[in-house]
Amino acid sequence: MALNNLLKQNKDTIVKKWLTSTIDIYPADTSRFMKGQKDPFANPVGNTLSVNLGPLFDELLNEMDCKAITSYLDPILRVRAVQPILSSSQSTGFIFLLKNAIRESLKKELSDKNILKELLYFESKIDELTLIAFDIYLKCREKVFGIKANEERNRTFRAFERAGLLTEIPADGPGL
């Protein structure tokens, strides 16, 4: 568990790198704003990332509680599911950027074979996290499609109603 200790010790640096590279997926002007604006109400997208990446990292170090992971991942993916400026792969693939952040932060330590072995195991956890992210992302997209479909259905219904083509069954009408 030497790697786990190293990751714990270097958590701040690693999470910061992960956060920076995740924000840098956005165009330069946007990422500059997201990094600079600290007010959570003025910058909900940046804030969602900065609040949730740290706890996600902790989950990777621990037991990977699915419920907790979902609660941290959902807000991030919910935002990305309505941002067509990012592709689906960019939206979910930011988790892979954690691998780079760890490799860059622990360059020296990773020359140790045993630590490297542990890293391979740890990286498979990151892969797993990405798959969970994919599921959540897809659920959010389905929700968006559901909302669109619902609006269309309501509009059609109202058009029929306006045209006098619908009759409601009276509540006090005769039973069958």
């Binding site: 840098d24 067509p84 693939g93």
Partner: peptide
């Protein structure tokens, strides 16, 4: 190209507009 994690570094005038579904 859509999996690329590096956005264009061009200024707004040189970044082509892509008309995206949903927008």
């Amino acid at each position: 190209a859509r999996t690329n994690f590096t956005p264009p570094k061009t200024g707004w005038m040189d970044t082509p507009t892509v008309i995206r579904e949903g927008m």
